[in-house]
Nucleic acid binder design. Structure first.
Length: 260
DNA sequence: GTCCAGGAGTAAG
DNA sequence: CTTACTCATGGA
């Protein structure tokens, strides 16, 4: 199954926040390149996760046939392989925020401190480099990006990364190890760490538990308790590719396909 | 005005 | 190891 729904994946799914539709094509600056939904090069093939067999993953025998409905409704939704640093910034900004506001914050951050590449005469701004963000004054960042108390987290995390915190190296250790190390970064708790693992480090066995997934796992799976407990139980039930399944379930809950 | 959003940090029990 | 409170912002 090679379906790729660009609108769903790049705009609606809330795993990435800076894609724009330009002349009917979704495009964004990804680590300094103009990436569009039409690209077929090796970088984009990896970024869009086009090699994974989603039919196989989604055939998981999950109770109540929930996934069947999700697969039909969200055919072509894929889990991106973003650069770790880009996912880190975006999901630090995501904490206790709604999707439309996260999109605004990411775009303001990139406009203020990132570089741009051109696509069809339009400027696509990318995430600021760690060394750049590390030198930004906190009050200035708050004022320009309107990101509130998250400004401090962005700057301090940028300092650690620019001073050698091995973000990309976490791609090669286990999800659990990566998660633990990510949580040492300011502004990165368990849920944000799971998002970085899933969307930015290629760990398909990460399972982010936000308010929607928590509600869904309780109402449909009977799993209650702390997000930590929900995460562990869900991983047992859903297996090694639980993160991919999480994305479908999250979207189903958020859009109301599944009433909670 | 209150409540909520892809929560995290901190202090306290 | 849990719970309770605070932290900015903007839209509903």
């Amino acid at each position: 199954m090679r379906e790729f729904n660009a609108h769903l994946t790049l705009f609606e799914s809330a795993q990435v926040f800076h894609f724009r539709r330009i002349c009917g094509v979704y495009a964004a600056n990804v680590s300094g390149r103009a990436v569009t939904e039409k690209d077929t090069d090796a970088f984009s093939e990896s970024y869009f996760d086009l090699k994974r067999d989603y039919a196989c993953v989604l055939s998981h025998p999950e109770p109540a046939g929930l996934l069947k409905r999700c697969v039909q409704a969200f055919c072509g939704l894929r889990v991106l392989n973003q650069p770790a640093w880009e996912a880190t910034l975006a999901f630090i900004l995501s904490a206790n925020n709604n999707v439309s506001r996260i999109r605004n914050l990411v775009n303001e951050l990139n406009l203020a401190y990132g570089d741009y590449v051109e696509y069809n005469g339009e400027r696509l701004y990318g995430f600021p480099r760690p060394e750049v963000l590390a030198r930004v004054d906190e009050a200035t960042l708050r004022e320009r990006v309107r990101c509130g108390y998250r400004a401090k987290y962005l700057i301090e995390t940028a300092r650690l990364v620019s001073q050698g915190f091995p973000l990309e190296a976490l791609r090669h250790c286990s999800c659990g190890e990566a998660r633990k190390k990510l949580m040492s970064l300011p502004g990165v708790g368990g849920k944000v760490a799971d998002c970085i693992c899933l969307f930015g480090l290629g760990h398909a066995d990460a399972f982010p538990v936000d308010v929607w997934v928590k509600r869904l796992m309780e109402s449909r799976f009977g799993i209650k308790g702390s997000p930590e407990r929900v995460r562990e139980e869900a991983k047992k039930i859903l297996g090694d590719s639980c993160g991919i399944l999480q994305q479908y379930l999250f979207h189903a809950a958020r859009t109301g396909l599944i009433d909670l």
